[in-house]
Design a protein around this nucleic acid. Structure first.
Lengths: 223, 223, 223, 223
DNA sequence: CATGAATGAGGCTTCATTCAT
DNA sequence: GATGAATGAAGCCTCATTCAT
């Protein structure tokens, strides 16, 4: 799951007020995951401890094991939730809208970059997931899931490009697969740079970039 | 250090026989770093053990501590070596060549994507470094170093863009800073995708992408 | 805590069955301290290992850390227990009795020297504590605690001396502070010598010594 | 060796200016011991490292092993030097002087307590030696040496007491062995208390104490 | 179901000692 | 002799996981 699959609207602050719904056995799994998001984001997978997560979730350490067989499984569950909860939905929704392909591409760009504000706080999870896919015991599982996530993402963008080509909006020699991979990658990487540099404005940068990029795509010279 | 700062030509086996001394009086530090590169790349920072590194380096566990005060320092040394040894040199060299800005941009693209073959093996280090900059004790150190590395990288590309604008090769409304950030990011992210998918061909994808991108930059319509 | 603050009556086996719970929910801390007393006394602080203590306590190594954050803290806890459990209580009790000051002084002398039998086994702890107060990380903490312990001890004896002076039992030119310091020291040191030499009889020596000493104190020549 | 066996005149600052006599192979052993005194006194036996000692001695770490087979042997050598160099000489010298037994006792008292100024800096060694005699591998060796040292000390004082009794200066019911043990102990312990408390004045305390003590010893009432 | 006390494998690190130069 | 780089045994401590209540 690339970070940009994860607009994360409403992610933050969601865990507060859990007190009121104490003993809602159904939500305990979610409760644990939510706590894990906080802790893993802050400490990273290795440095996070089950104790810490339990405390954050307001439950006993042993209880976590009622829902997840191991720390790694819990981490993977966080990962799945991350993807599943937010995934490429935003992008897909925008793709389904009307308007020119270019406009929708730019809408995607805007939506993703605007999500940075909320994403920021848990963005480090992406790095943890990358790291997990690189070297943990669960390497393959994570890698496969990432692969799938990127694929989904590229597929949506590629469709849109293809549509633009079909409509004659984009040049016919454009390769939708390559373009979507690059575009998805750019979005991804801009958020990464934003993470490193506080005063980096991903929306501004991305908007300027998109102007150039869509001009390169356009079948007819843009003004 | 973005992964694309690291062509890694000749990464492997470079440290052997560096100097002709019968013993290994000076090269031991390098020897340890080389071993660490292997182990950290394979296991990740947390899962790697000092024992493993020592065995890989063919030395005693305690010897590592003669050269590095802690595991974290060793990891950071690997990081510095990663950046320092390869850094943005390739890019800088290409920027210094003659030819049009567009040609040099495409040469950079080609050089970076071609380095994937060698980079592949140690690419996971990038993810570990990201992760370290996100949540380890060393967080700030890594983050700052990354920041600097990205900055260097963007500066080189931005200069080239600026040069292209000045020459009238690129459109005058192009913002070199934004473009360079996006371009650097794209290269970065394409390698990431290549890491996830074995049959992803970053050079092919990037080349097609660049064709579109430089068209978007160009002051005069390209054929 | 001077060794003579520590009559140690009943040191051994006191912690067992303290409470009737089937499990050992509260006594575990005591259990660990008791085991530590044995091990530290036998091996000294540095040579004692947490493993050894755990085995002696019949628990797992990790369990110790549930009760004490570090080896040093555990050692200090042993120290506190040593002082707190036995401290200058004996002396204080005797001071509170009736009788002449001289009699009470001699009673203190007797009580302390008689405690040697039990003290013997853990006496080496005193040396370890001294050593700790001299050079360990915990130096200041131990030193301060010792200081306090000696001060308490001297205060009690000094009061008694003062009382004797006030009553006209002791010479008016006697300085209670100096005398108490010396007396406390003498007791301390006699036990030390007893530790070094098996056939040294501290009670006999101290009794003969006290006869002379109280004669020196007496306002009226003793028979 | 009780601390009071060790006036330590001139101990401090003796190691400086060793530079000038570099390569005096005969003195290297002493050089090492002198350095060890500093380091052991400051860090304690366990925390002191051979490296530190070597640095303090201005020689290579390996060189120490040319002179001492192990750290423990070195420590014992420091101990022996401590005793041998200073031992009970002061006391013995005073015992050999003329004058009344009482005067010589008080001279001993004064000499010992006055040595506190210099002794202070290395006094912690005494505690380390105690600790070593209590729990190190070399326990027996240290213990035996301590025993001997105390014995020597007591013997000298006991002789003096005996002389006083024989002369009719001291009461005939005085037991020289007990008195000497107690007196030696008192001196010992007063230095210990001085170590714990900075503003404790051992000389003043001991002098007042001695006035009382010798009155107790005296055959004839003193004024 | 929930808990958290107990556990012990395993990691990082220290440092006395060795030994090739 | 002198050295100090190399070593590896051994220690402290962490923490995921278990399990009795």
């Amino acid at each position: 799951m690339s970070p940009l699959c994860v607009p994360h609207w409403s992610l933050v602050g969601k865990e507060r007020n859990v007190e009121t719904e104490r003993k809602r056995p159904k939500g305990k799994r979610t409760q644990i995951i939510t706590a894990s998001v906080q802790v893993f984001a802050q400490k990273g997978f290795s440095s996070a401890t089950m104790k810490e997560i339990a405390v954050q979730a307001g439950i006993g350490k042993g209880t976590i094991y009622e829902y997840f067989p191991s720390k790694e499984e819990l981490f993977f569950a966080v990962f799945e939730w991350y993807v599943g909860e937010f995934g490429s939905k935003t992008i897909a929704n925008i793709a389904a809208l009307g308007g020119s392909a270019r406009e929708r591409l730019q809408a995607m760009n805007e939506a993703l970059m605007k999500s940075w504000g909320e994403l920021k706080d848990v963005y480090t999870l992406s790095m943890e997931f990358w790291s997990a896919s690189a070297s943990s015991q669960m390497r393959e599982r994570f890698k496969e899931a990432f692969r799938q996530s990127y694929r989904d993402f590229r597929r949506i963008v590629a469709s849109l490009i293809r549509e633009g080509v079909a409509r004659g909006e984009f040049r016919s020699d454009v390769d939708p697969e390559s373009v979507s991979a690059a575009l998805v990658g750019t979005w991804d990487a801009l958020l990464l740079q934003a993470w490193f540099e506080d005063d980096f404005d991903p929306l501004k940068t991305a908007t300027k970039y998109m102007a150039i990029f869509v001009r390169g795509l356009a079948a007819q010279p843009l003004t």
